[in-house]
Amino acid sequence: MLSGKVAVITGAGPGLGRTLAGLMVEEGARVVVSARSRAALEETAAAGGALAVPADVRDPDQVQALARTTVDRFGRIDVLVNAAFPGTHRKNVLDMDPDYLELWRSAVETATYGTLLACRYLAPYMVEGGGGSIVNVTSLSSRTGYAGRSDYATGKAGVHLLSHCLADELGPLGVRVNCVAPGWIASDALTTWMETRARDEGTTFQTVYDHDVDRMALRRIATEEDVARAVIFLAGDGAKAITGATIDVNGGQLFT
């Protein structure tokens, strides 16, 4: 599906980014992975057979260097996946002190401004090469608000409308822009969160798990591979008539 294509993944640390990099290599792509943490990035690159290029997506100079390094090495860019994780610090607006407000701004900048910068500096190489695909990883949290998650939700929601704008701007030039919006993803972090909820609610992990999964139409939590496969579909030629769209990968937890 991606044979011969050159793909860049931002936010490619542990978890989804690492899984996606490995699967893209298996699909025949030449993959460049990028993140702020060099140690985690090198683990991702080693596990997936990709090239590691550290970069902070909020820094225009570093994003431009990522684009140049990719083109110098592989000659072009066909696919860009923006998957930088802005983090969430779970605080009510009335409890936000000045230090937290800076964390809030940083989270939104990572998600929305970071996505914009990556598109600004990598998309021209796609246009030059005759076209390409941008896939932005957003979240179920950008579809509906939850208390204490306004930083994460706002940043990811901004990416949805940014993607619509860029799809309209870049479509005539042969570049498609779409989103994948995961819900919960089966992981150690999710398990820890459910265990914490169980303790807070005075119940068991299994009770919390069953309650949450029973709200999903498919009665299961999506895996990293489930989300990665949706990204790969949108990145490939099988989706060549799709732009400005969002694929929700949440097991039927939320219909949009």
Rank of each mutant, 00 (worst) to 15 (best):
R120C: 07
A65M: 13
L161K: 14
G48K: 09
G132H: 05
E225F: 00
R197W: 02
L234C: 11
L20H: 01
D214E: 15
A45M: 04
C179K: 00
R229G: 04
Y100T: 03
V127M: 06
I247G: 10
N178C: 03
T110G: 02
A123W: 00
R220D: 04
G22Y: 09
G252Y: 07
K240Q: 15
V8K: 01
S150W: 04
A118D: 06
A147I: 13
L140R: 04
T115M: 09
D168A: 07
G174L: 03
R76L: 03
D151V: 14
V33C: 10
G171D: 07
G183T: 01
E201G: 05
P172K: 10
A230D: 08
E201S: 05
A35C: 11
L116Y: 15
R18Q: 04
G155C: 06
T154N: 07
A239C: 07
S163C: 03
L218I: 12
A157Y: 01
A167E: 03
A29D: 10
G252S: 02
C119H: 06
L190P: 08
S133W: 05
R143D: 15
A12V: 15
G15N: 07
I185P: 01
G244W: 00
S141M: 13
L103H: 12
Q62N: 08
T19P: 09
V25A: 09
A235Y: 13
A39C: 10
Y113D: 04
V57N: 07
G251A: 12
T204K: 10
I247H: 11
C179Y: 06
I185D: 01
G13K: 07
L140W: 06
I77S: 08
H89K: 14
T246E: 09
C179A: 04
V31M: 13
V71T: 10
P182S: 00
I242H: 06
V108Q: 09
T192P: 07
T203S: 01
T88Y: 06
V57I: 12
P14H: 03
L20M: 07
L80H: 08
D56E: 09
E43N: 12
T115N: 06
G49E: 11
D200S: 12
A40R: 15
S3K: 11
K5N: 07
V208K: 04
L122S: 04
S133Y: 13
G4V: 01
W184T: 12
F205Q: 10
G130E: 04
D188V: 10
L166A: 00
V25G: 13
S150G: 11
I9Q: 08
L117V: 02
A123F: 10
Y113A: 12
R58Y: 12
P86S: 05
V33G: 08
P54Y: 03
E224F: 13
R120M: 02
A111L: 14
T246M: 06
V159L: 10
G75A: 15
R149Q: 14
T243A: 08
R197Q: 11
R105D: 08
D59V: 11
R197L: 14
E224M: 14
V32Q: 15
V227F: 09
A147S: 10
M96S: 12
D212S: 10
T154D: 08
A235P: 02
L16D: 09
R58C: 15
Q64M: 07
L80E: 05
V93N: 10
P182I: 02
E128S: 10
F85P: 04
G238W: 09
R143N: 13
T154V: 12
A241H: 15
G15P: 09
E195K: 14
